[in-house]
């Protein structure tokens, strides 16, 4: 009776189909149709050869549910082997996150804030920005979110640092090999467009929820993309004439990379670092669903318990944090640009 009966018959697969014997568990659709009483629902049978439609004609054929179940089963099967490898490799991330969280929250505010302002001074050399940062932190402290903000900052510092640590070398490698670039770009595209929640699902299976690396990896995977992309782009955009001059004067590849390409690509690389920091901030909020501490927890509380005020104020706190991070990195970017302006 099903649409594709004829197909399996002409292919001579009828025996194989029927040997599949017992029909799989009933799908939700079937159940609905049954309760409604009529076999053909309003839409009629889908003419498109979908897994479910084929299964109807041939019970041995897998249903679409089997695909997702199979994927899950497959993942669970390799999980143990995967954990043996991945767990120790990523363990330092847990230590770093724990340590930084610990330091930044247990250091008293009258030490922590001056240190943050000092860092700001080092990278921007601008009193205006320092005043702005002080004001922002003051505001966060004023609504008693100082501790939460420090937790969020700690996670961002660690994750952004690791993104730069791995992202810049990957970007450099991509700029030197067209083949690697062709392979890496689709991967980067996927990392960037995959909905952030999706990162969390396999990670929950892999690591225990008490491990900070669970959200650390999610944040890093999501935020590493811009720094890789812009490093690659920046090095490829370095003036061909200057590279030719470097070759003509007999520079080695290493001299060219560290003496010419990286310094000239630095504005672009810094723009990538800025984007990476902003994206890790976005992800750290989502990662609070898997126990990442910080302002995200409050946002989550706002959603879960419908505490409108808590959610909104925490949201605004994140905005303040975002503006601070953005202004500081942009100002340091501008400083690099000005001190070696190429045009």
């Amino acid at each position: 009776m099903a649409t594709y009966d004829g197909l399996f018959d002409t292919l001579g697969l009828r025996d194989w189909c029927d040997s599949g014997g017992e029909a799989g568990p009933m799908s939700m659709e079937d159940l609905m149709a049954q309760t409604k009483g009529s076999e053909e629902a309003a839409n009629g049978p889908v003419p498109f050869p979908s897994l479910d439609a084929l299964n109807e004609a041939c019970p041995a054929w897998p249903q679409s549910r089997d695909l997702t179940v199979g994927l899950e089963q497959g993942f669970l099967d390799i999980r143990d082997a995967l954990t043996v490898v991945v767990d120790p490799v990523t363990q330092p991330l847990s230590w770093m996150l724990r340590g930084t969280l610990d330091v930044m929250t247990s250091t008293p505010w009258y030490v922590m804030i001056p240190i943050l302002l000092l860092i700001t001074w080092f990278v921007t050399r601008s009193w205006k920005i320092i005043g702005f940062v002080a004001l922002g932190i003051g505001l966060l402290a004023f609504v008693d979110y100082y501790d939460y903000a420090m937790q969020t900052l700690a996670i961002i510092f660690v994750c952004a640092f690791i993104c730069v640590l791995f992202g810049v070398p990957i970007g450099i490698a991509m700029s030197r090999s067209d083949k690697l670039q062709r392979v890496a770009i689709p991967v980067l595209d996927m990392l960037q467009t995959l909905p952030p929640f999706v990162y969390l699902i396999p990670l929950i299976f892999l690591f225990s929820v008490t491990e900070p690396k669970l959200y650390g990896i999610a944040v890093i995977l999501y935020a590493i993309v811009p720094v890789v992309r812009l490093t690659d782009l920046g090095i490829r955009l370095v003036d061909k004439d200057v590279i030719e001059a470097a070759d003509a004067f007999g520079m080695t590849r290493r001299q060219k990379l560290f003496g010419v390409q990286i310094p000239l690509a630095l504005p672009n690389i810094m723009a990538g670092v800025n984007q990476t920091i902003m994206m890790s901030l976005a992800m750290v909020v989502i990662a609070s669903m898997v126990s990442a501490p910080g302002l995200g927890i409050l946002v989550l509380r706002g959603i879960r318990n419908l505490e409108l005020g808590v959610g909104l104020i925490a949201g605004l706190g994140i905005v303040i944090l975002a503006i601070i991070l953005d202004r500081v990195t942009k100002a340091s970017l501008a400083r690099i640009d000005a001190s070696q302006s190429s045009r």
Binding site: D239, D241, V242, E244, A245, A248, F249, G259, V260, P263, L264, Q340, S341, S342, R343
Partner: peptide, 11 residues
């Protein structure tokens, strides 16, 4: 070598 567009290191 001397180049048409100078090709000095800008930094």
């Amino acid at each position: 070598m001397v180049f048409q567009k100078f090709a000095l290191l800008p930094h």
